[in-house]
Design a protein around this nucleic acid. Structure first.
Lengths: 161, 161
DNA sequence: ACCATAATGTTCAATCATGAACATAATTGT
DNA sequence: ACAATTATGTTCATGATTGAACATTATGGT
């Protein structure tokens, strides 16, 4: 059915659109995934936002707070609130850059690295579990679709700044 | 040992797993979608959580707060916080059920209905935009995958209650 | 009928995320 | 060189979400 026809008809509801239904499913799956991950991480005393940070520090040693915030699609102020907590727990370190005195370079402590590895195991296991043995090719196609969407949405983002 | 070392059979880092990368993409897409939707709804003075509520009231007239919370995968207390706001703005009504004096039956006011229709247009348009003309069949496959995941995760949910 | 249990909704304190306003440091244009 | 602009990080007030404790009402077992 044609998009234009659909949107000009009288008796159609958003939830009758395949794209709409599909997107609702994606959103609900994300929500559930977050909640389940929160439960499974509870015994490590970290939450999904912390894990996101730790994984990125694991991957990109020496990243700045700004870069980190951009990768995570959150505000800088969010990092300013969360990172000192992780620093107090001695999971991460913040050292100021000699060249640019504005930036703080982030890295994991040995303790933080160990914790991150444990947490990543949990996350990976959850992702495997929740996929229930679905074929890898499906995953790849989903990833493609999502990355296209991300590109489109980021473009809109940048256009209004 | 080289961090970047990856065998074709065994993935050493989470981000080398197709499922992991795919899931990260899904999560980021959701995040961006929420942020964009928040911006596009701003002039109506509602946010995505409010829209979720309104759409469900549009669809399921007379639903209770408990049922609504279950559909939205949020806590009952969340509804107790948000619904009075919408009621004060005269977008919804809450009438107590005669048969069961515990439950409050929810419905949209005419104003609320109109606002909901406007907001749903915006949401539908955003979903269409962000998909960038991807084929409907891809959407359907994604929906299937997500619904399978939702089923699996809900099962785990119920098992520990 | 009666007591125990479950279901529904509210309140409250705690936590998370955000944007605006701010301070400091770097960069650019002239 | 210097003023204007941009970039980085912090602080603060605000709003969203949660879970626990609570009050009220239904339901079930005896």
């Amino acid at each position: 059915m044609n998009k234009r026809q659909v949107s000009s008809e009288h008796h159609h509801f958003p939830w009758d659109h395949p794209r709409f239904r599909s997107w609702i499913a994606v959103a609900r799956a994300c929500q559930l995934m977050q909640q389940t991950l929160t439960r499974r991480l509870a015994h490590l005393d970290i939450k999904p936002p912390h894990l996101d940070i730790l994984v990125n520090l694991y991957r990109f040693e020496g990243i700045s707070q700004q870069e980190l915030a951009r990768k995570l699609l959150v505000g800088r102020s969010n990092m300013s609130m969360l990172l000192p907590q992780l620093e107090k727990r001695e999971l991460i370190e913040r050292r100021s850059d000699a060249r640019d005195k504005r930036v703080l370079r982030l890295s994991l402590t040995p303790t933080g690295r160990t914790l991150t590895e444990e947490a990543m195991e949990i996350q990976t296991a959850l992702i495997e579990d929740s996929h229930g043995g679905a074929p890898i090719e499906d995953c790849m196609k989903i990833a493609e679709s999502m990355e296209r969407m991300i590109a489109i949405l980021l473009k809109e983002d940048r256009e209004l700044s």
